[in-house]
Design a protein around this nucleic acid. Sequence first.
RNA 1: GUCCGGGUGGUGAAAUAGGUAAACACGCGACACUUAAAAUGUCGUGGCUGUAACAGGCCAUGCCGGUUCGAUUCCGGCCCCGGGCACCA
Length: 1187
Amino acid sequence: MDYDVSIDFSMKYDFKKIEKKWQKFWEEKRTYFADDKSRRKKKYILIEFPYPSGEGLHMGHLRPYTAGDVYSRFLKMNGSEVMYPIGWDAFGLPAENYAIKHGVHPSISTAKNIANAKKQLRSWGIGFDWSREINTTDPNYYKWTQWIFLQLFKAGLAYEAKGMINWCPKDKTGLANEEVINGCCERCGAKVEKKEMRQWYLKITAYAEKLLNGLKKLDWPEKIKIQQENWIGKSEGVEIDFEVKTKEKPNFLILHGRNGSPKSHLFPWLKSELEKKGYKVQAPFLPNTDEPDDEEQTQFVLKKCKLDKNTVIVGHSFGGIVALRLLEKGIKAQKVVLLCTPFFGKFLDNKVRASVTRACRKGFNFKKILAGKTSFDLLYDTTDYVVPLSDGETFSKKLKVPLNTVAGKEPHLSGKREPAVLEKLSPLIKVFTTRPDTLFGATYMVLAPEHQLISNLKSRIINSKEVELYLKKAVKKSDEERIAEGKEKTGVELKGIKAINPANGKEIPVWIADYVLTGYGTGAIMAVPAHDERDFEFAKKYKLPVQQVIAPHLIDKEHMPQKGKENTKRNVVHVLLKHPTEDKVIALRHRKFPWLTPITGGIEKGESAIAAAAREIKEETGYKNFRFVKRLPFKVFAEFYAAHKSVNRLTLCDFLFFELVDEKRGAVSSEERANYDVEWLPLKDIHKFTPVSELDFMIEFLKRGEYVYTGDGLLINSDKFDGMPSEKAKWEITKFVGGKRKTQYRLRDWVFSRQRYWGEPIPLVFCETCKKRAQNRADYTQNSAEKFPRKSASSQRESAFSKGEIENPGWIAVSEENLPVKLPPVKKYKPTGTGESPLAAIKSWVSVKCPKCGGAAKRETNTMPQWAGSSWYYLRYCDPNNKKEFSGQKLMKRWLPVDVYFGGLEHTTLHLLYSRFWHLFLHDKKLVPSPEPYTRRIPHGIILGPDNEKMSKSRGNVVSPDSVIKKFGADCLRMYELFLGPHEATVSWNSQGILGISRFLERVYKKFCEPAAEKSSGKTEQVIHRAVKKVGEDIRSVKFNTAVSALMICMNEIEGEKLSRELREMFLKILAPFAPYLAEELWQRTKINADTSVQIRADRNQRKSAFRSIHLENWPSYDEKLIKSETFTLVIQVNGKVRDTVEAPAGISKTEAEKLALGSEKIKNIVKPGAVKKVIYVPNRLVNIVI
RNA sequence: GUCCGGGUGGUGAAAUAGGUAAACACGCGACACUUAAAAUGUCGUGGCUGUAACAGGCCAUGCCGGUUCGAUUCCGGCCCCGGGCACCA
């Protein structure tokens, strides 16, 4: 403890010496450590902890850290116990890439980088609580990262799946949706590719609603909230089923299983449902159903049933065996559907079913079965208690078709109704739409290229070659290519397949196109080209029909026809007459009222619309020679006054488009001439002339040659719904076709595994043995527990499977006492690029014993993304050394939630979303006390280089904080950074500007080298008190730039004035958060100066222990009375223009002010006596004389 | 395309429950100190116009329009810049 707090009373501001001295002092005094037990009110201030890269910390770090530091110091001085912790987000690509580049193991380079960054942070004078320092790569830390992951896994929120994911070819790893920015990797900027891979996902979508709701209560900038909201992208709509029809109508043969009959289980229901849809169905009673013989039943079917090439054979359980036997005998069928058909003849309930086992033992002749080119479909029950799923898997391999599984209404798909089965036989296309009101206008359907139905109906697609070609192309296409194609839509029709529009029963074509996305909704849409831009574009390209079903309801109160302009006709035409040579159209201008209308007329009985229009043109304009061009395919509802009923009445209007041939005119009817003038309006800016909506629509048509109306309106062409407002029709039509309300989110699940070395290992192992048992869990646990009460030793073990283990058969959680799963030390850690993590090559690490059954198992070799460790670090700060829990409840209650979180906007849909998700989950599990992690979020703008460009090595415009410190000192760096501009604004570093701050600090230093005065003037007192107020307010509202400016103003005013000891202290205290070193140094001088009168040669040690840091002092309070001034500058305006100013006593009345104003010589020259119309007085500000 | 921000001197920017536009700072200019330079200090600094000099006048917060005694601030339309999302049915 030998530090030097001696004072150098020289007049030179030697910041190097000063800063070094106090750094050491604060460290040893633990000045910034937060006390867990203090009774003061807690404040938890957080900044995003850095990842320690080789380049060290840069300006981007300085900004939030300084802001947090000023804020923390201020709160601390105002009586709060402030925690402002720091740590290292050291896993992940930057650290790993650095390590690879320099040929050092990441653990070594990381440690080195941390040491360096730590040195930097200390020199910056940031008052972090170093006692809570954490490091995500420390096994004591990532043990808990893994632990939290396991909680997510056990809750069924983690799953493994194969799918197309974003792949960064440079970093050689998969990426989450959030990590792809403009089609490029968020880290390295490389173009992202699509790659099909096995991945772990976290079900963040399950928290979509909670993530959305939680936002409402947060004190975050609206901008960030909106961005998260949009990212989650909630939309409410309905799901509607469309039936599918194929060209060759199938007929069905249903074969029941052992102990079954056509009158039992699902068969009566299934038969009637299929018949309802117009299919022929045969459902024979098969002989000897108690102990059936496959050969006997097969012969029976051959004899009794009619089979042809359009027959679909449905075999339930044993019936499936019979179905396959039929194929072995050379029967040609369209399709065979196997429902829970056994393969091995061993059953999950260990019961003996000798006849079934016997049949299975005979085996199947797959060569013959496959020879008939029959297609297959496998549907197995995940809640089965008899036939294991693995039997289905075997069939799936042998028949080379995918296995479909479903949880049956009853186990073994034996419920009275099994909708999943019906759907397999008579396929439906489920669509999601937010516009069910437009259903009658659905003229075709589109499936995403990955849609299941395509492979399911493969045999019935006539143009399957063409379809396959398209699929291949679509899958290969990267996002980049799609963008390059300019979103030109492509697609191909599924010929031989039609869908039925459930609203009107019409057959509509089914297409596949990649403008429909797999991941959203159901991966299929109903296309309504008349009311959706995308569908319209597609329909236009492939010449698909367009049907308008929504007509806008035009009410234009201002221009609504009045009494006298009567219209009782049902049908009205609007006419647009174009000039023969110029881009102008005719409108009628009312003589009395300021409005324009199109030529409009009613259609007489027996008259065609065109004839009516022609008549109107002649009557209203006098033009004789014109020709009909076209009828616009778009109608609107307009309101007219119906005189005989004295009500406004809706009329459906047609648009007809004419062109003038020559300008010869005849007489205009007298009525029209009295009311209207004919006027030619330029098409281009017709909006400037008229707000009449009919014209708007017509013009849009003419300009673009087409029109897609996506707004609300009244229904047309929709049978009994005609005339209904679209908002109401949404739910009425949904009801009509039996649709279901559904909420969809744009948010996708979080791709959570990375194929890299430097990350937390995912603490799971894969066990083949447990896989089989987990697959058929439900029969032992829920569904049939009562029916089959027998419980073997093995079944009891299986009942202990967690939700995650059931949903991911074979994946077993590492037991908690074996956490952490440490990263093995290896030499080769470069990414393989094959999609496998480098860890996969370490055999000794990969093979483990299964935690559940003790058998041979393999570790998961993917690691977690960088976002894992940072998703909960703020929790660990509360209790960083806890060995029993991720963080102690008591301490979390003490510190959470984070009061203010300073950080970058780039994390809005990354870290900020992820960590909220984890927190909400932990809160649901009652593991954290607060519902949300961060109460207030304060984002910052980026600092650009002096050339207004982003700082980067390649541009050579990087200004490093350390070089600035060398030249000007840390206090100067900090203050200048704050002074650059508003915290949230993007600012550029101006190397000249820093001189201003440097001069300021120098002047402060000099000023405080003067001895304290006995007394200060009242004016000086006022100046300081005002500064105390202003600086405090500005820090509170995060306006650091104006706070610094207030300090400067204050300094300018006290220069040359005498400063009492009290005022000196006040000034230093408000300077302290900004320039902690200088303030501390001068504070010490002030104190010692004050004390020297008593004891100038105090013992050094004594002095040192008696010295209390300025940063632990209380924020000064100001006196409101001192701040108020007795006079103010009265501004005198005439007609709103400033003409003079006078000093006036504060608080004068209006009359007094008026007197003063009129008394001014300048005003007398301008305002003649008696000319004053009105006087406005704003107290203590201005007088405005209106003349 | 759409959703957020934002447009103020030579530069960074201040000022918005509507009330003196340009605080503070950089830069620039003049002067002082100096043999000189740097540093420091003092004064000046939006544009146009005007005066011998004061004084004075007009125009100025992206553009156009509106509300108001008064608009950088509120409303409507447009232009430009930055950022997010982007075939999300």
